[in-house]
Amino acid sequence: METVVNEWIDYFDSNKSKLEMSFVAPQGIENTSRMHTGGRVYIKKPIKVSSLNRVHGFLEVLKLLLFGHYDFVVCLSVPLLKVCAIIRKCFKRKFGIISWFHFSLTRIIKNSDEKYLKMCDFHLAISSGISDYLIQHGVPKNEIALIYNPSGDDHAINDRKSYLKRRNDGILRLAYVGRVLWNGQKNLQFLLTGLSQFQLPWRLRIIGTGPEPDLTLLKQYVEVNNLSDYVAIDGWQANPFKRVSNQSDFVILTSEYEGLPMVLIEALQRGIPVISSDCPDGTRDVVSTENGYLYKVGDMTDFIHVLNTAFNQKNAFSYHAVRKSGRKFDSSSYFVRVEKAFNQIDEVSRC
């Protein structure tokens, strides 16, 4: 989400659009070093006491919406959506509300939240799964724009050094890039369990970090199952794909759910094929027969079958075909969709 918001900050701050966009983090952000700055970026310093921070955040939103004279407010979370809807109703303001969620709606929307979805004037969907969810829950199709997400690293993607060079050594080389979560969303336990049962030669490189308990469980599993020669744990890296491009046959993701898996998009745009769980939301927008394989979420038999197929057919994927399959996520294509969506929002608001 930080990556995409930074893309918006850069785009709307560069006068490429007729829209004037402000970016506000009313409750603050703990680590602002990864966030871009600009003339209309307002990130508040968080208060350590969480209950006071929520009150402070509400007051900041109230002040902005009462005195900011905004035409539309884009909400990235359900709590912010609720706050904006309440302020609009109580103070009889005329601004429109747009949802822009970056997580699986089946995980973040409760039954009591559905009325707030219908209070929105428009929805920006980052995946077809999110769009389908909204339609199934009563949102008119003409109030939804499917915009996906941008890759966020076009200059690196165009670097010819990122060409994939597969090794012909009879080993399936995989890379996991992302947050290290042993159970739950990322489900690295499933990944390691499946590879332990896989009968053909393999290697796994894990790039990323996570909560200390999850890192401990990962390292313990590797040690107890004598996998130290097969699993490399690199930790957090500023440029993870520098380690992936010339050393891996596939980027792999075993998530139980995703909004839109950016790591798969970044892999495709570097010509690296992918293996992923078939999540309810975003993976089908990314993975196709041209660039990789999907397996049923939580189905170990299907997962190992996919690993066998990938081992036998890893050279079947063309670098150029894989890259081409990811072009719809290029930043230039992405912001064409965003601008079109805002034109659509303007038309809907006039009706």
Rank of each mutant, 00 (worst) to 15 (best):
E2D: 09
E7P: 02
Y11N: 00
D13E: 15
N15V: 07
E20H: 14
M21Y: 12
M21L: 11
P26S: 10
Q27E: 15
N31E: 14
S33K: 12
K48E: 12
L59E: 09
V61L: 14
L62D: 05
L64S: 14
A85C: 14
F101E: 13
H102M: 14
F103H: 15
I109Q: 08
Y116I: 07
L117P: 04
L117A: 07
I126M: 08
I126Y: 03
G129N: 07
Y133Q: 04
Q136G: 09
P140S: 15
G152Y: 05
I157L: 12
K165G: 07
N168M: 05
L172T: 07
G184Y: 02
G184V: 05
L195E: 05
Q199N: 15
L200V: 03
L200C: 01
L204W: 03
I206F: 02
L218F: 02
Q220A: 06
Q220R: 10
V231S: 03
Q237Y: 07
P240D: 05
P240T: 05
K242L: 13
I272H: 03
D278Y: 09
D278S: 11
C279D: 08
D281N: 05
S288F: 06
G292C: 04
V297S: 06
D299Q: 07
V306P: 01
F311Q: 06
R327P: 04
S332D: 12
S333Q: 10
E339I: 03
K340S: 11
Q344S: 13
I345F: 15
R350M: 12
R350K: 15
